[in-house]
């Protein structure tokens, strides 16, 4: 399954943290590092499987957690409508 970012959401960067917010209803979503990485990679058109493969290669010592962390982040972002299912 591929996802695309919801263009209604804007990014506000803090020191080591990210806030996503909508301009339509001022809802804020706090992103941890994994969620922000997922967001950025979805923004550039990368599929979820490609994100997992990339991260497992980059961080082999965390291989066991990466799939779960990415899917958790995707589920959370999709539940907030920050990520939309890409049916194309």
């Amino acid at each position: 399954m591929n996802y695309r970012v919801n263009p209604e959401f804007k990014v506000e960067e803090f020191d080591n943290e990210i806030l996503l917010y909508t301009v339509s209803n001022a809802t804020g979503i706090y992103l941890n590092q994994t969620a922000y990485l997922v967001w950025k990679m979805c923004e550039s058109g990368t599929s979820i499987e490609e994100i997992i493969t990339f991260l497992e290669k980059e961080y082999p010592e965390q291989r066991n957690e990466i799939r779960k962390d990415v899917l958790t982040a995707v589920t959370s972002l999709a539940a907030s409508d920050a990520l939309l299912k890409d049916n194309a």
Partner: peptide, 16 residues
């Protein structure tokens, strides 16, 4: 942190 704090402030922000 600021991001989480801002997200929580937004939940209490009434004239956005």
């Amino acid at each position: 942190g600021g991001a989480l704090g801002c997200a929580q402030l937004m939940e209490c922000y009434v004239n956005a």
